[in-house]
Design a protein around this nucleic acid. Structure first.
Lengths: 154, 154
DNA sequence: ATAAAAAAAGAGATTCTTGTCTTAAACTCG
DNA sequence: CGAGTTTAAGACAAGAATCTCTTTTTTTAT
C-alpha cells in the first residue's frame, strides 16, 4: 500500500511531532537511528517534506529538523501526498480499472470500509490531534518504544 | 499490498475458473486480452502457476490453460504464495519491525481486522467456492463484465 | 573572519518489478 | 511424417524504488 519511503516519512513526522520543537531541533542522524532507517535516504525524504512545508529545518550547528506550530496543523495525509501520491488509495485491490460499489471486484466490500477508516485516520486529524491520540492510546512509532513484555501483569 | 504480477495472477485464476474446462482450454492471448494485461508478462505468470500446479496446461493446437478439478480445490491464497509470498500480509502497515496487539502502531487496530477479513476471504475458501460466491453476489473480475449503468432502475 | 556543523542538492549505484524477445519443446491434425 | 500452434524457458531490457556518495550552501560559535 505505502512505499517504504512513505512509511519512513510518516514515522519521521510523528517522531518529530513528539520529540522536536523550535528549541530542540533534531538532526537526520538521530532520527535515522531512532527509526532504524537508512540515513541518507531519510535525509532525501526530509528534504522533500521541507520543500513541501511539512517539516521545518535550519542548517548549521544546533540545526536540524523540527515541526513548528503551522506544520502541526497538517495531516498525515499531506505526507502521503508529498511522498507517494494518492493513487494507491484510489486503485482497486485487484487492479481493476473500474471497480466501485456498482461494479465491485470480489473483495471490494472488504477493502472499501478499510480504506474509509484509514483515510479518516490520516486525513481528518491534524498531526497535533494525531499525536494526542497516539499518546492517549499508548501507540508505538519507533522500535525504541517497545515495552518488550516487561509489564506482564498490567 | 499485492504486486501487479499477483493481481494479474489472481484475476487469471478466477477467469479460468469461470471460463475454462478440460474441454475448453484458453490461450494466453485470449486471457491477456480479456483481462487487459501485458501478454508476455502474463505468460510468465501462468508458467509459474503451472509449475506450482495451480493451473493446468497443454501445448499444441487446441492447447492452452485451464483448471482441472484438483486445481479448483486450491485457494486464492495459494496463488499469492506462489507469486508474491506472504510477507506483505505479515508486515506492519507503517513498516515497524515489531508491531502487534501489545505494541501496536498508530493504525494497527484499523489494519488488523482488515487483514483478518481479506485473509479469510482468500485462504478459507477453495477456488470453486470462491467462484460460487462471485456468481451469487454478481462480482466483476474482468473489464468486459461491466454493466456500465445500463440497468439504472434496478 | 574562520572553522565546524548541519541541511540541500545532485549525481550515481543497486536492486526489484515489470515487461519483452527469442528459441526450444510438445502437441495436434491433416 | 510434417506443418502449424501453443506452452516453456531463459536471456534480456526498461523503469521505478531504494539507497549512497560527494559537493555546496547556510548557520553558529569561537
Amino acid at each position: 500500500m505505502l512505499s517504504n519511503a512513505c512509511k519512513y516519512a510518516i514515522r519521521s513526522i510523528l517522531y518529530l511531532a513528539i520529540n522536536s520543537s523550535e528549541d530542540n531541533k533534531i538532526g537526520v542522524k538521530i532520527i535515522a537511528e531512532e527509526l532504524e532507517t537508512p540515513q541518507p535516504f531519510l535525509a532525501k525524504l526530509l528534504q522533500q517534506l521541507t520543500r513541501d512545508k511539512l517539516v521545518s529545518s535550519t542548517k548549521g550547528p544546533n540545526g536540524g529538523f523540527y515541526l513548528d506550530s503551522k506544520n502541526r496543523k497538517n495531516a498525515i495525509w499531506d505526507v502521503i501526498i508529498s511522498i507517494d501520491g494518492t493513487s494507491k488509495f484510489d486503485n482497486c485491490f485487484l487492479g481493476l480499472a473500474k471497480c466501485d460499489d456498482r461494479n465491485p471486484c470480489p473483495v471490494h466490500f472488504i477493502v472499501s470500509p478499510f480504506k474509509d477508516k484509514i483515510l479518516s485516520s490520516f486525513r481528518d486529524k491534524t498531526i497535533d490531534e494525531y499525536v494526542v491520540e497516539i499518546k492517549n492510546t499508548n501507540r508505538v512509532i519507533s522500535l525504541k518504544d517497545l515495552d518488550l513484555f516487561e509489564n506482564e501483569d498490567s
